[in-house]
């Protein structure tokens, strides 16, 4: 097996179709294996790996149904904690975003914003919207991967947190272009989401004011 990537919670292997699925087929597939973490108690470890594997597969296909490009899932192995999926050829948005021209960056971010809105309208939140989980293909499509922290949640709060995470990723990784990138994301999001987008965006601002030191003052009243 050839290790393609060692993610935070999984190892990703690139394998010939036949080897990954034990049946005839062309090309290469990605096997995402959620590895056990010795630091956490076995009950939590098993529960997290199993539920995330199963849920991720389901979210991938529902996202695709909502017109958000995601890899095709070929196999869900809840015992081995493995997902077998299509290999997406392209570049991580993380690696290209800062290098693009201003206009290209704006277009890309608008598209990302639109896709986030499509997920949200379908009742899905991604849960880990960072630019390493977005793959830009040669045709200019943006694939979303890693739904391991995603969920079905149509609440304002969940949507706000989702967008907030994307903003945070832009701040910590793409600090040179954060503002323009985030503005474009919001523009795309608003256009696609339509009515109600303003409420979500307002919630993002609210979330930013919590969890800082505000919590400390809140606890006075507990």
């Amino acid at each position: 097996m050839s290790l393609m990537k060692k993610g935070a919670e999984a190892n990703l292997y690139l394998e010939p179709f036949a080897r990954a699925l034990h049946r005839a087929g062309e090309g290469k597939l990605v096997v995402k294996h959620r590895i056990s973490k010795r630091y956490r108690t076995p009950e939590i470890d098993e529960q997290l790996r199993e539920s995330r594997t199963a849920l991720e597969a389901k979210l991938f296909s529902d996202a695709k149904r909502a017109s958000v490009p995601t890899p095709v899932i070929y196999e869900v192995d809840r015992v081995g904690m493995r997902l077998v999926m299509e290999f997406i050829e392209g570049k991580q948005v993380k690696l290209v975003l800062d290098k693009l021209s201003r206009n290209a960056r704006r277009r890309l971010c608008e598209l990302i914003g639109r896709q986030v809105a499509r997920l949200h309208r379908a009742g899905i939140v991604h849960g880990d919207l960072t630019t390493s989980n977005m793959i830009l293909t040669r045709e200019g499509k943006v694939y979303f991967v890693d739904f391991g922290l995603g969920e079905y949640n149509p609440s304002l709060e969940a949507r706000g947190v989702d967008l907030h995470l994307l903003k945070r990723a832009l701040q910590s990784i793409h600090f040179r272009v954060t503002d323009e990138a985030y503005r474009a994301v919001l523009a795309g999001y608003q256009r696609e989401f339509g009515r109600g987008a303003g409420e979500v965006i307002k919630r993002v601002e609210e979330i930013e004011h919590r969890g800082r030191y505000v919590a400390k003052e809140d606890r006075t009243w507990r």
Binding site: I44, V161, R168
Partner: peptide, 10 residues
Amino acid sequence: ALPYVVKGMD
């Protein structure tokens, strides 16, 4: 079992 909540990095 208790609720385990990680949202992205948060």
